[in-house]
Design a protein around this nucleic acid. Structure first.
Lengths: 204, 204
DNA sequence: AAATAATCTTTACACTGTCAAGATTATTTC
DNA sequence: GAAATAATCTTGACAGTGTAAAGATTATTT
């Protein structure tokens, strides 16, 4: 039997998540409606309620998918830079963060628009945590530190995260409009910022 | 004649902006409806359309008001630190940026949620530009540079902006949940990140 | 005083999120 | 395998939403 044409959809949950993401990519995140998502999945307007408690939970699922995809990209960036300095790897990590946001603004927005406060929905795999641990390890490697991260290390982790997150947000939300950075591409901007911050993490 | 009770409101435009801001502060930015804004201003649900083309333009006006308020705070921060090093002033500027976002998350969100792309609405005073120029000047002062800012200076401007903006976004959107930074307050976090980045801007 | 413009209200419409009740299919139980 | 149960999807309904058009009221200009 063809599951695509049966009364039951087969894998509607994933279809809804994908439809939401693509719809957000096309029309912006604020104009994604549950009904159009359902229509795009060729399903009635109330069908999503059998897989999600409501719109918020669907958007949260999109966010989790985003964290998963980002985790994949970050891991790739690390594995591509095994034969480099520790700072090369940290820089590659940061560049991957920004590149992911620029390439998938819809996912990125879903990930950082009030997702955390709704702790009602648990994170099965917690890719966000994995990303964070990878960042800590990369900073530690730069400082030649092992074991429990020191406070100075955690301060640098905070700084590194803030830098790339700020760049990502400003780019995604068009924050550079009206400034001299307006004309530059993400690649150039991220490269410059990372090079500029090198003395912070590569000290000695 | 009492303007508050006449058929004409008197200063409905400002009342609508304020109502939108306070409503966003209470119920979150996504659940602010034009109709409730109008109700809060004791006016019929279609009255706002005589002052704004639609919901988007009203939100844009809130964003502009946010830039104005932020400009005030940043100027204050500068004037409070006249008798300090150049880096003190830059740090104060950054701290003010983060503090503003933490104290006025609704304004901050309105300012950086796809405001720029709608270039249809002009900015009368452009406080965003003023803020940016202040940042450039502060970085230049740290480097003892005068005249046209060099590329190295602009790179540092980019880095400084990204750092404080990233911190602000992560705090406002609860991005630190699930990390060791979760328990710390904004003040501590911003202070640490600024101190941590000092060698970048205070070099020599 | 009359005419015009600005401001606000009323009415209407399509669209939204959500729920309840019923229809259809899959899975379990005997 | 047949009956019972659960899972999934549909239909219908409701209050709220943004927006537009047309009418009512007040300010401003002529």
């Amino acid at each position: 039997m063809n599951p695509a044409r049966s009364y039951h959809h087969g894998d509607l949950r994933k279809a809804l998540i994908d439809a939401t993401a693509s719809l957000a990519a096309e029309k912006g995140p604020d104009s994604v409606s549950l009904r159009e998502v359902a229509k795009r999945a060729r399903v009635s307007h109330a069908a999503p309620y059998h897989h999600f408690k409501g719109k918020a939970e669907l958007l949260h699922a999109v966010a989790l998918e985003g964290f998963r995809l980002m985790d994949v990209e970050m891991s790739r960036a690390l594995s591509r830079n095994i034969q480099g300095t520790a700072y090369d790897r940290l820089g590659a990590l940061g560049a991957a963060y920004i590149r992911f946001a620029a390439k998938n603004p819809h996912y990125f927005r879903a990930m950082f628009r009030g997702v955390a406060p709704d702790k009602a929905f648990p994170d099965p795999d917690d890719h966000g945590q994995k990303n964070f641990n990878g960042l800590v390890a990369a900073v530690q490697a730069c400082r030649g530190e092992t074991g429990k991260p020191s406070r100075a290390t955690m301060d640098q982790v905070l700084a590194a995260w803030a830098i790339v997150h700020g760049m990502a947000c400003l780019w995604v939300e068009r924050g550079f409009c009206g400034t001299p950075f307006e004309r530059l591409g993400v690649r150039v901007l991220s490269q410059r910022v990372i090079a500029c911050c090198r003395p912070l993490f590569d000290a000695r």
